[in-house]
Design a protein around this nucleic acid. Structure first.
Lengths: 336, 336
DNA sequence: ATGAAAGCGCTAACAC
DNA sequence: GTGTTAGCGCTTTCAT
């Protein structure tokens, strides 16, 4: 196997273990020559310190946990990219945990994080999370937590999101500006922060523009493609909305599918806009008007804040909302 | 902070540290009553074992590393999903490392993995990886490695891939069957295993069907969207191929972009097929014929094999190629 | 400038 | 059944 450790280096060089340890960490009270000898041998024998021994001793793991609902999703994939870009820079390691949008799994996973496995947590909560005890327990354990995207608003820490309310308002307004009189909303679970905000933006835009808020035009999707498909189909058949603001891209794709089946034309019969990070939005048929979120930046920012807190001795994370703006990109699906 | 550890439990219960340790691990030589007392208190105090102390002692970390070129890519995102599904089941932790397709980063990253941070490695190598010393070093350190997708063929271990050669042959044959006389190939780096195989499949299909192999119809893309765009544009302008087999979806999207700019019609002027895991393939304009890889299953299989090796005492991984079949899904982009 | 020794939290022989 | 003890590999006082 391996077993080239500090002790071995010390034996070979006829030095004490502590001298070698200090030399490797470039301590001031080790002579230059000794340091060089140690480093040379370490390189030669391809010595790598055992991170866990060090973690155990220092109560620092140099690793963070990233907890997200899913990964096969452009948004989260990009966010991880952002997180990883900073982690790599700061020499941190990144543990990934998927909740599959299930609180039970989320709770089970957070248990693993007590006991020092990680120094901090980045999380986008599952849509079934209503009780935050498991997260508060992490905090009590001394773990700084930064939320991103799907945040717990009542949680006293930093939350990084996009301007969900404003963008939703804008999206709905855009539909209205393009001539929609009856824009519907495909909503996320009301449990989650961003679900609520997107809904609010939709409603406020209707109200401000003299349109009625019709409950039957608001569909709560369930993140099951088949079920969502049926609900969207029913909406289009019965309510006949002339525009749809989808809270997430998956629902908009559902609309595309339903329209194809029902022979409805986008944007003629119904216009479509949604939050999305699809690379292929402009190649869809028709190309899809999106609210593009700065997913990479959100991940990066959340990670940067967490690491800044970890750098300090006392990582008091302020209760703060950091908002990065999304961008409305108009394409064919909302043409007048 | 925290500091509820075994010692504390032992003190409170007036037991020895080892008794508590054994009780928690449900050892046979601890009485039922003692076990219950210990477990009850552990739960009450929300005790979580320090994983690193245990790792240090047992030389097992219960974590694996997943090294991939990128993550904002449906293929790898799905693969991670597969990996994670097994890891969660087996109670393993997953560290993610991105190489951004750069060997230097790959080498730097692998250094972190010596010294016991992980028990095993799943890797899809970067396209600039030609020297495998850094990977062999991991192996020498006693770390089992399983390759998936972008494998090192000469490396003596398990490699999980899709049937790249056969699928590429089929893809090219499909273009020919649909009437193409001059199918071009947008190729990946020749360094990587799958790049070579996809190229081979393309060439063999041409040969078997009496078509000449024309070097000018083979474009080596570089994974820079702008540069690739220009090369594809030049190809379409100068060589005027009537079909394109793209080795990865990103190149096919490039073709869509170029065709739009040059006012070329797909599939009339040029047919397009590619390896892809795009959820939106069927909604593109025109819908895209794809070779869909079993990405989730590939990740899952690779992870399953790694864990099987880790379960045993001696994890000799055989030199073996595991091949999961891809599926050709015909859509509009290759209609005759 | 270097070394000795204690200990991070846990496990596993081995006693009793 | 339960306790004692000796580490895992490393860091960090505190001596020298």
């Amino acid at each position: 196997m391996e077993s080239v450790n500090i002790k071995k280096l010390a034996q070979i060089l006829n030095l004490s273990i502590s001298a070698v340890s200090k030399a490797l960490r470039d301590s001031h009270d080790i002579s230059k020559e000794t340091k060089e000898k140690v480093i040379a041998l370490a390189r030669e024998l391809n010595y790598q310190p055992n991170p866990y021994a060090s973690s155990l001793r220092k109560h620092k793991s140099k690793t963070i946990a990233v907890i997200i609902p899913e990964i096969a999703n452009n948004y989260f994939a990009l966010a991880i990219n952002g997180i990883e870009s900073i982690a790599q820079e700061k020499n941190y390691h990144v543990l990934i945990y998927l909740t599959h949008d299930d609180v039970k799994k989320e709770i089970a996973l957070t248990k693993y994080l007590h006991g020092g496995r990680v120094d901090g947590v980045l999380i986008s909560v599952s849509s079934t999370t209503t009780d935050y005890t498991h997260l508060h327990q992490l905090e009590e354990n001394g773990l700084p937590i930064v939320f991103f995207d799907r945040v717990c608003e009542s949680f006293n820490t930093v939350k990084v999101t996009t301007d969900d309310y404003e963008s939703s308002y804008l999206a709905t307004k855009h539909l209205i500006d393009q001539g929609c009189k009856k824009p519907a909303h495909l909503a996320m679970s009301e449990n989650i922060s961003i679900g609520k905000k997107r809904m609010k933006g939709y409603i406020q835009a209707l109200t401000d523009n003299g349109l009625p808020v019709d409950e039957s035009l608001i569909i709560k999707c369930v993140n099951d493609d088949k079920q969502d498909f049926e609900m969207i189909k029913e909406l289009l058949l019965k309510q006949k909305p002339d525009g749809i603001f989808a809270a997430v891209e998956q629902y908009a794709l559902g609309v595309y599918g339903v329209c194809r089946q029902l022979n409805l034309a986008i944007p003629k019969d119904v216009k479509v806009i949604c939050f999305s990070n699809l690379k292929t939005a402009s190649f869809l048929n028709p190309s899809l008007t999106t609210i593009t979120q700065p997913a990479f930046e959100i991940g990066k920012e959340a990670a940067a804040i967490l690491f800044k807190a970890l750098d300090k001795k006392s990582f008091q994370l302020k209760d703060e909302n950091i908002v990065l703006k999304s961008m409305l990109v108009q394409r064919e699906s909302t043409e007048a």
